[in-house]
Measured scan of single mutants.
Amino acid sequence: KFGRVHERAEGPAKILAIGTATPFHWVDQSSYPDYYFRVTNSDHLVDLKEKFRRICNRTMISKRHMFLTEEILQKNPNLCSHNEPSFDVRQDILVSEIPKLGKEAVLMAIDEWAQPKSKITHLVFCTRSGVDMPGADYQLIKLLGLSPSVQRVMMYQQGCFAGGTMLRLAKDLAENNKGARVLVVCAESSAIGFRGPSEDHPDNLIAQALFGDGAAALIIGSDPKMGLERPIFEIVTTAQTFVPNGDCHLALHLREMGLTFHCTKDVPPTIAKNVESCLIKAFEPLGISDWNSIFWILHPGGNAIVDQVESTLGLEPNKLQATRNILREYGNLSSACVLFILDEIRKKSGREGLKTSGDGLDLGVLLSFGPGLTIETVVLR
């Protein structure tokens, strides 16, 4: 008597548009150690500064975009301390800036989509910054002038794996609601975790050397309108798992001094060791076991992770080039990073006149991972 209210779509979910945005301000990685130790009044920690310089040199990052300028840091000195309470200051900045950054990426996506924004039916927003109620999803709806009846899902504090999570959720929403057009937004800022150095917490140096700011937005829907919408990728399958006891290797915690970062040297080999089982589960039903026969979007948690995944799986050097390019130009953008790589690989395919948006290949994989050593596996066509 009370059956399904919403009719299912006929076809699989497809990515119809991609937009990205970054803050205008950026830092050069080669000179960042001098800048970082100067603005945090830590130049007296000579040995720690040299250690940080070595870490920065190993990241293979060229530059990173950041909202925090020297002027902002001078006005808010607690942000430059390692342990002073600064959460309220971070909140005041990020509750406002995260939706604005997301808006810039959304406008780029809508411009490519070339359809009225009134056709957006759902919003899925993800960030690890600016936790608030009502959330960044609500603020973004107002900034864009979208209908208050847009169906919203707000996900805070997920971390680097969440780019894949957003695709998984959007696929379910698009395929189970005929005519749905799902706006996916990942907006991230390193301002939540920026803090001064400490000899007692070397993990913090890794975070300060890796993370950048950026937002990515996608429009996802099934059954694209012929002649009006141009699909870029099809989302074939999605899956999530985590490595048992992985939280002892990688975890982040909200504290009075901001978001703290805990990471062990076992993260790269542990991820590399567990990736292939995810690939087998995803691609065995499709008859694929040659990992060089697919295109790759791999989250660059750090250069060591990229190198070890490449080595463990025997990947050809060009397979992870898009990942390395984004890491070099932006650093680790947390949940937004794989979506930047997705954009990079389709643009490169277009520039080179390849037959598909995925490096000329039919199928590919998007792998994202993060806290708890959670792994998201997304098969794309």
Results as ranks from 00 to 15, higher is better:
residue 1 K to M: 00
residue 5 V to S: 08
residue 6 H to E: 11
residue 8 R to Y: 05
residue 11 G to K: 15
residue 12 P to Q: 08
residue 14 K to M: 12
residue 15 I to R: 03
residue 16 L to T: 01
residue 16 L to R: 02
residue 19 G to K: 03
residue 22 T to N: 11
residue 25 H to Y: 10
residue 27 V to A: 04
residue 27 V to K: 02
residue 31 S to E: 15
residue 31 S to F: 12
residue 36 Y to V: 01
residue 37 F to W: 10
residue 40 T to P: 03
residue 44 H to Q: 09
residue 46 V to M: 10
residue 46 V to T: 13
residue 47 D to Y: 04
residue 48 L to E: 10
residue 48 L to R: 05
residue 49 K to N: 04
residue 49 K to W: 03
residue 53 R to S: 10
residue 57 N to D: 12
residue 57 N to R: 00
residue 58 R to S: 13
residue 59 T to E: 04
residue 61 I to V: 07
residue 67 F to R: 13
residue 68 L to E: 08
residue 69 T to C: 01
residue 74 Q to N: 00
residue 77 P to S: 10
residue 77 P to W: 00
residue 79 L to M: 04
residue 81 S to Q: 12
residue 82 H to K: 14
residue 83 N to K: 09
residue 84 E to H: 11
residue 86 S to G: 12
residue 87 F to I: 12
residue 87 F to P: 06
residue 88 D to Y: 12
residue 89 V to Y: 03
residue 89 V to A: 12
residue 90 R to G: 06
residue 92 D to V: 02
residue 96 S to L: 04
residue 97 E to L: 02
residue 98 I to A: 07
residue 98 I to D: 03
residue 101 L to E: 01
residue 101 L to I: 06
residue 103 K to V: 10
residue 110 I to S: 02
residue 111 D to E: 13
residue 112 E to M: 05
residue 115 Q to L: 04
residue 118 S to M: 01
residue 121 T to V: 03
residue 122 H to M: 08
residue 124 V to D: 08
residue 127 T to L: 07
residue 129 S to N: 10
residue 130 G to R: 05
residue 133 M to W: 07
residue 139 Q to T: 04
residue 139 Q to K: 14
residue 140 L to D: 11
residue 142 K to T: 14
residue 143 L to K: 07
residue 144 L to G: 02
residue 147 S to K: 03
residue 148 P to S: 07
residue 149 S to T: 06
residue 149 S to W: 07
residue 228 L to V: 15
residue 228 L to Q: 06
residue 228 L to E: 09
residue 229 E to V: 09
residue 230 R to W: 09
residue 231 P to K: 02
residue 232 I to D: 03
residue 233 F to T: 15
residue 235 I to L: 04
residue 235 I to Y: 07
residue 236 V to Q: 11
residue 236 V to K: 03
residue 241 T to P: 10
residue 241 T to I: 13
residue 242 F to I: 15
residue 242 F to E: 13
residue 243 V to Y: 07
residue 244 P to T: 13
residue 244 P to L: 04
residue 244 P to W: 08
residue 245 N to C: 08
residue 246 G to D: 09
residue 246 G to W: 12
residue 247 D to N: 08
residue 248 C to F: 05
residue 249 H to Q: 05
residue 249 H to R: 11
residue 250 L to K: 15
residue 251 A to W: 14
residue 251 A to D: 10
residue 252 L to G: 15
residue 253 H to F: 10
residue 254 L to D: 15
residue 256 E to M: 10
residue 257 M to N: 09
residue 258 G to V: 05
residue 258 G to L: 13
residue 259 L to D: 13
residue 259 L to M: 11
residue 262 H to D: 15
residue 262 H to K: 14
residue 263 C to Q: 05
residue 263 C to F: 08
residue 264 T to W: 10
residue 265 K to H: 10
residue 265 K to Y: 02
residue 265 K to L: 08
residue 265 K to V: 02
residue 267 V to E: 02
residue 268 P to N: 06
residue 270 T to K: 09
residue 271 I to G: 02
residue 271 I to W: 12
residue 274 N to K: 11
residue 275 V to E: 02
residue 275 V to C: 01
residue 277 S to V: 12
residue 278 C to T: 00
residue 279 L to D: 09
residue 279 L to T: 06
residue 280 I to P: 07
residue 280 I to F: 04
residue 282 A to S: 01
residue 283 F to S: 02
residue 284 E to A: 08
residue 284 E to P: 02
residue 286 L to W: 08
residue 289 S to F: 05
residue 291 W to A: 09
residue 296 W to A: 07
residue 298 L to F: 07
residue 299 H to P: 14
residue 299 H to T: 04
residue 300 P to Y: 12
residue 300 P to G: 03
residue 304 A to Q: 10
residue 306 V to K: 04
residue 307 D to N: 11
residue 307 D to F: 04
residue 307 D to M: 13
residue 308 Q to Y: 13
residue 310 E to T: 03
residue 310 E to Q: 13
residue 313 L to C: 06
residue 313 L to I: 01
residue 314 G to D: 09
residue 314 G to S: 05
residue 317 P to S: 10
residue 317 P to D: 00
residue 318 N to G: 10
residue 318 N to S: 10
residue 318 N to P: 03
residue 319 K to V: 04
residue 320 L to K: 01
residue 320 L to I: 12
residue 321 Q to M: 13
residue 321 Q to R: 07
residue 322 A to F: 09
residue 323 T to N: 01
residue 324 R to N: 10
residue 325 N to C: 12
residue 325 N to V: 08
residue 325 N to P: 14
residue 326 I to G: 10
residue 327 L to E: 09
residue 331 G to S: 08
residue 336 A to Y: 11
residue 339 L to M: 12
residue 343 D to E: 02
residue 343 D to V: 00
residue 343 D to C: 00
residue 344 E to V: 05
residue 345 I to G: 02
residue 345 I to A: 06
residue 345 I to T: 12
residue 351 R to F: 01
residue 352 E to I: 02
residue 352 E to G: 07
residue 352 E to W: 06
residue 354 L to R: 02
residue 355 K to T: 08
residue 359 D to Y: 02
residue 361 L to A: 02
residue 362 D to P: 10
residue 364 G to M: 02
residue 368 S to V: 01
residue 370 G to R: 14
residue 370 G to S: 13
residue 371 P to R: 13
residue 371 P to T: 09
residue 371 P to Y: 01
residue 372 G to P: 15
residue 373 L to R: 15
residue 375 I to L: 09
residue 375 I to F: 13
residue 375 I to Y: 14
residue 376 E to A: 00
residue 380 L to I: 04
